[in-house]
Design a protein around this nucleic acid. Sequence first.
DNA 1: AATCAGTAGTTGACATAACAGAGAGTGTTA
DNA 2: TAACACTCTCTGTTATGTCAACTACTGATT
Lengths: 158, 158
Amino acid sequence: MTKDVDASRPAGLVYDAWRGVLFATSRTLQIAEPDLIAKAGFPLTWLDVLAQLYDAADDGLRMQELEQRSLFTRSGLTRLVDRIESAGLVRREAVAGDRRGVRVVLTPEGRRRHDAAFADHNKFIEREFGRRLTEAQLQAVAEALATFWHDDEAAAKG
Amino acid sequence: MTKDVDASRPAGLVYDAWRGVLFATSRTLQIAEPDLIAKAGFPLTWLDVLAQLYDAADDGLRMQELEQRSLFTRSGLTRLVDRIESAGLVRREAVAGDRRGVRVVLTPEGRRRHDAAFADHNKFIEREFGRRLTEAQLQAVAEALATFWHDDEAAAKG
DNA sequence: AATCAGTAGTTGACATAACAGAGAGTGTTA
DNA sequence: TAACACTCTCTGTTATGTCAACTACTGATT
């Protein structure tokens, strides 16, 4: 292995932590995705969008805002919303005063499906991810990695 | 640690840890991938494969073994290896004694490109991921999440 | 030696993502 | 009010991954 990494810190430590994070994510998602599809009938990408809309005000979000809060590109979102819309879970509405814009809004059906899916998914994460760590470990991980989503929230507000 | 989720556990704790892991991964990958492409000329999926072959013995790995050690399906791997092969970084060779099989082997060029890419990528992770955690936090995360890749290694050997 | 279940890897059809650029609308400036 | 730069969203093309079906081979059984 390379020797010229930061000498003040045990070599491999960062890499071990990174590797852990990477594997925890992929392994968990790899089983959570099929589980969600089986129970809710749609994939995690849909749940991401639905959850964003759920957290937003009743008049939904513009495509642009969805883009900022998700990990998708704009063109990816157009098509993703297309699919969710043709399943009847969201609706595109005109924006008063800006004819370029679109608001994406949860339908009642979408809200129901979100609630069920969200509950199931959380239970799944509790079981499959949470089971493998002690309470102290969960706390340590949560605290150590909190910095990564604080960034996001700052960006979404700014 | 097997089946029963500890009911005495604070409600949002698992979720906060999971959220941290998720965001740390996506945020870091989101910047590491373009960086690798700019410097090495290929994406992270290639580096995964090259690194597996690098760690293996000189006669490489069979598709099957690559599959177990990566997060790809077999057909996905077929195509990934196709691409890497046509870039000249790996070579498919016949397996003595089993005419169904294929060994995937690093070419000298592949080894060189791996070394450079691996060093760059590690430095990048050191900086962008490692920078945001204290040494104690790195240690805690590494230890807490080690279970997720030990599974993999066990599976690869068993 | 004929059969047949199982294994190794590839291929075809399809789903979903990204990038670049198009089309429509807005608002400011001259 | 014509021109222009900018914004918002969608579309065309291409890349990459999955699932299911397929070919080729192996090894055990009869």
